[in-house]
Design a protein around this nucleic acid. Structure first.
Lengths: 171, 171
DNA sequence: ACTCTCATGTAATGGGTTACATGATTTA
DNA sequence: TAAATCATGTAACCCATTACATGAGAGT
């Protein structure tokens, strides 16, 4: 992020909270110690910004050495994606749960996915004119991905409902 | 997994390696200590199976107390999905990299996604008749999801190629 | 009066991987 | 003869979160 603009630990966390969190995230407990370490290693420099009405900020700026490290990162191998989905894990073992319960899982996941999608779409509307083509691609991947998941979940819900009716219906 | 059938640590790892790994994974360094802990806590019992030609196995079986713990888990809140995608992170900062490099990232991600999709489709073909409806739904979500990502990546690649040509073409 | 935003940082704790250690049998 | 499969387990290490500690100003 410091390649794009100088920022404080707080600013960085804010960026994570937006679109970024859909594919990477970090807490303050990671961000602040990492910035300290990077400063010690000469990858970034710190400058204290005195603010009135607000607490002071530590603004970090990337150094030439830091830019080199970033370039080396870009040329390293891509790490495999890591996913931990409690919902999918439960769904996998859904046959061992009450159909009622599975129903509720699907409904609540549909709701939260709809909310995430809405947030991404809002982000898309405001950011669309001023972000880079690859950032736009990130947003597009995120949005169509969620739309797709939603469709699947809704179909799955309808299917399970049909099965429940058949099971509960007259013999 | 022990709710479905008795298994050894090795068997459990095998299951993770299949379909399961798309939404959850664990290494032996997690599996074996966890099984020991669960046995200590009375959630599962261990039985040594003597094999000829192969090393002996520790077969674990879930206890009534373990089944209760599983039921409590099913009724607990669903944890939010966690994703760490190096590819998406790079793509987000793709504007800071050579277009050549971004091109290669997209191509290699397309290749590996195609492979994952092929593996899921193969798994679907063989498993389809004998797995539960929710497990089928898991597979379907995984497959259409990857198909969707592939489509996005291919479109993105085409788009970036067009931009490169325009940028490199005659003024 | 209360809560939220801004802002930084550390300590305790938890969770997990990787590498190491071992070893027989089967397959290429 | 090399390597892959089957099989278990521990120790060192890494990474990260959560909770704690602090504190002013702005909004409800």
């Amino acid at each position: 992020m410091l390649m794009q603009s100088d920022a404080s630990g707080y600013d960085i966390k804010q960026q994570f909270e937006k679109l970024f969190s859909y594919f990477y995230n970090a807490s303050y407990g990671t961000i602040y110690p990492t910035l300290s370490r990077m400063e010690r290693e000469g990858l970034i420099t710190k400058e204290n910004l005195v603010q009135t009405g607000k607490p002071n900020k530590n603004i970090y700026t990337i150094t030439e050495k830091g830019k080199e490290a970033f370039r080396r990162y870009l040329e390293s191998d891509i790490q495999e994606v890591e996913i931990k989905s409690d919902f999918m894990t439960r769904l996998y073992f859904g046959g061992l749960a009450e159909p009622e319960l599975v129903h509720r899982w699907l409904e609540s996941t549909i709701r939260s996915t709809e909310q995430s999608l809405a947030r991404l779409q809002a982000e898309y509307e405001v950011s669309q004119p001023r972000i880079s083509p690859t950032q736009l691609l990130c947003l597009k991947i995120g949005m169509t991905n969620m739309e797709n998941i939603l469709k699947n979940l809704q179909e799955g819900l309808a299917q399970l409902s049909r099965m429940k009716e058949e099971g509960a219906g007259p013999a």
